[in-house]
Design a binder for these strands. Structure first.
Length: 217
DNA sequence: AACCAGGAGACAT
DNA sequence: ATGTCTCATGGT
């Protein structure tokens, strides 16, 4: 079976560095993490552009905004009513704790629990924020990650989030520079999925769909 | 025209 | 602990 480190090597060889997250500030990363829940990034870009254009890309502006207005602005990202609430929850929490800079002092486990306590932030969104906004050593697991590693024989298809995250982190525990490694790894899996093989339904006839990475090149 | 996207929560079992 | 349903726009 292909090792977790070898999978990374092959992904990196194919797609090169991805330099994620596509966001300019930690706060923009957090907003993007919520807006991209089960949604294509192209749609999220529009929503973020709208927020910028409306001068609303700050915690204060989002909390102060009328919920209907906020939903209207983020409309292109889909699920706009739920996501408007989720953004407001996130921003209320950020203001309550005294801003992002205050959070830098917290240990990762405590920060993770605090994020998960915000309604609308689940495991993946929390870990996106931890890794890409706070540079914490957390392996982000998403639907593609589960499909990839279950198809490669590393885990069951119905593996739970935490089980797979801990398994992957354990497999890479001796790797140097894990934060940049995790950063690239998740981005590379998404890049790979964008090309092929990681959709919900396996593409019939695709010779790679049982795990393209088993093949060289 | 169906399928899917860088999920999460409420709720039932 | 594990399923099912809902939320919704935009691209292929």
């Amino acid at each position: 079976m292909l090792g977790v480190d070898e999978v990374y090597r092959r992904l990196f060889e194919r797609y090169g560095p991805q330099h994620w997250w596509p966001g300019e500030t930690p706060f923009e990363v957090m907003v993007g993490a919520v807006l991209t829940q089960n949604t294509a990034w192209s749609n999220v870009e529009r929503a973020i552009d709208n927020l910028k254009g409306a001068q609303m890309l700050t915690p204060e502006a989002i909390v102060a905004a009328d919920p209907v207005r906020l939903a209207e602005v983020i409309r292109p990202s889909g699920y706009f009513n739920v996501k408007a609430k989720r953004l407001a929850n996130l921003c209320r929490w950020l203001i309550e704790v005294g801003g992002e800079t205050t959070l830098a002092a917290r240990p990762t486990s405590a920060l993770r629990e605090a994020l998960l306590a915000v309604n609308g932030i689940g495991y993946e969104t929390a870990d996106d924020i931890l890794l890409y906004a706070f540079d914490r050593e957390v392996f982000v697991v998403d639907a593609y990650t589960k499909r990839l590693f279950s198809r490669l024989g590393h885990c069951a298809a119905q593996v739970g989030y935490e089980a797979l995250r801990l398994q992957l982190e354990a497999a890479l525990r001796d790797a140097p520079a894990r934060v940049p490694l995790y950063n690239e790894y998740h981005a590379l899996i998404v890049a790979h999925a964008k090309v092929h093989c990681l959709k919900r339904a396996r593409c019939s006839g695709c010779p790679l769909h049982h795990g393209c990475l088993n093949r060289e090149g």
